[in-house]
């Protein structure tokens, strides 16, 4: 009789890395569909190109460095799709390719692949593209419905759009971020499949609300405009780069909200979300260090 001698435990929870990434893709679907409905075919092309370049980039990098090709854990696909949804529908296709390769090879691959990077690949790639080619990422295509050729985003003239428009998303903006309703649907999907916990999205959105209000913006409009909701649900909750404990995640969310408000008020770039979350990613190792839990049977925290 041939028996496996693997050690306890002998059962395993159904959630695997691939299943979790599948949940994220499922949750991204409404936003992707909304993006295509609002901006038409170019949005679809861009998303496809960036997913392909991310997946191909990861496969080549892993083969180049002699690792086992792990592309089927869908993490590269998630990175590619999120990056694609961060671009403006009018961005050229090669921008998605450069961004995809930068995310998968430089931000993730060089550090050792899944779980070893310290910045969110899609977000870092978006920042890199924003810094390199600002005009591609800040001139927005108007939605198919409206006729205004390149109207300013709600950030540029906050009073230009009603809250309804902001929520439903027929406003200029990047593919995935515009339709806030789709983002909320995605958020509910992620919560129900227990892929993420509420701590980061809620704390980030609330702190943005509060700090933008303090700095003189209309809080609701501030949260609904730009990529706050999309980023807080999909990008800030990336396991690898956000703190481990719930206490740390709340600190992370509040910090990001504060930075979003500061950068929007004083910074050069209209959209503070990207840099705010990146800065909190950089601070995550320190947050993790000082939000360690008390071990059973000890009075104070274990030594850092």
């Amino acid at each position: 009789m041939k028996l496996h001698l693997t050690p306890a435990p002998h059962v395993h929870s159904p959630q695997t890395t691939r299943a979790l990434m599948g949940n994220v893709l499922l949750a991204l679907a409404p936003c992707a569909v909304a993006g295509v409905v609002i901006f038409g075919a170019p949005a679809l092309v861009l998303m496809a190109v960036s997913v392909l370049s991310a997946v191909a980039g990861e496969a080549c990098w892993q083969r180049l460095t002699g690792q086992k090709v792990r592309v089927n854990d869908l993490s590269a696909a998630v990175t590619g799709l999120i990056l694609g949804m961060n671009l403006s529908p009018r961005a050229p296709w090669w921008l998605a390719v450069v961004g995809g390769l930068f995310a998968v090879v430089l931000v993730k691959g060089l550090f050792g692949g899944l779980g070893d990077n310290f910045l969110n690949p899609a977000l870092a790639a978006r920042a890199f593209l924003l810094v390199s080619w600002p005009r591609y990422l800040t001139t927005w295509a108007a939605p198919l419905a409206a006729d205004a050729v390149s109207g300013a985003t709600p950030l540029a003239n906050p009073s230009g759009y009603t809250l309804g428009q902001l929520f439903l998303g027929n406003i200029p903006g990047s593919i995935g971020e515009v339709c806030k309703a789709a983002v909320l649907v995605g958020f509910v999907i992620l919560l129900c499949t227990k892929t993420i916990t509420w701590h980061i999205p809620v704390s980030l959105t609330l702190s943005t609300l509060v700090f933008c209000g303090l700095l003189g913006y209309n809080p609701i409009a501030a949260v609904l405009s730009g990529g706050v909701l999309f980023a807080s649900v999909f990008m800030a909750t990336d396991y690898v780069t956000c703190p481990m404990s719930t206490k740390g995640q709340l600190v992370y969310g509040v910090g990001a909200g504060l930075l979003i408000a500061l950068i929007r008020k004083f910074g050069l770039y209209p959209e503070g979300v990207t840099f705010a979350i990146l800065l909190m990613n950089v601070a995550t190792p320190l947050i993790d260090r000082y939000t360690k839990r008390r071990v059973y049977g000890y009075e104070k925290e274990a030594k850092a």
């Binding site: 550090f111 050792g112 920042a127 810094v131 910074g267 050069l268 503070g272 990146l278 800065l279 950089v282």
Partner: peptide, 27 residues
């Protein structure tokens, strides 16, 4: 990867942190 251990990966990390610090530009 072995050749990137030590200073190269530190520089790349610093580069990514610098990328994040660009957010403060204009302040």
């Amino acid at each position: 990867p072995a050749p990137f251990k030590g200073m190269p990966i530190t520089l790349i990390s610093a580069g990514l942190i610098a990328l994040a610090f660009i957010g403060f530009k204009g302040m």
